[in-house]
Design a binder for these strands. Sequence first.
DNA 1: GCCAACGTTGGC
DNA 2: GCCAACGTTGGC
Length: 153
Amino acid sequence: MRYWLMKSEPDEFGIEDLRNRPDRTEPWDGVRNYQARNFMRDEMSVGDRAFFYHSNCKEPGIVGIMTISRAGYPDDTAFDPEDKHYDPKSDPEKPRWYRVDVTFERTLDRCISLAELKQHAQALEGLHLLRRGNRLSVMPVSADHWRYILSLE
DNA sequence: GCCAACGTTGGC
DNA sequence: GCCAACGTTGGC
């Protein structure tokens, strides 16, 4: 079982949106970055857990926990010309982009903000989120970092 | 294969 | 809204 962190802009899709979905489950689609795709396509398994991170908002940070409820499968929003994340280079015969399904587990008691995480840079050394210029929206979190971050809650 | 131009991400 | 950092594109 592995741990992850996945970013979403709360104005687009936040933790409360996930909670309100049928079965509290939603495909994590629209990711158009190869490194993030590879994690979803190749390395995520059902039962893995992930931090839900709110990005590009007033208080960026970790706000909840979700579980991976379906392993990597083609992201067919890439095939839809009407879709915001349409990619004409993704061929249904050979999909370029993948997604997983995620299921709401719980919200944290409070947002563990990016600013707070930065104050623990030493204990969280290597956490991708804290690396300079980080833009990756799906990233692994070590078991040690996972536990440490939850201990801040 | 290099690299400048461009578009996007995301914190502030 | 600004802008630094980054990934992608495309000319050569």
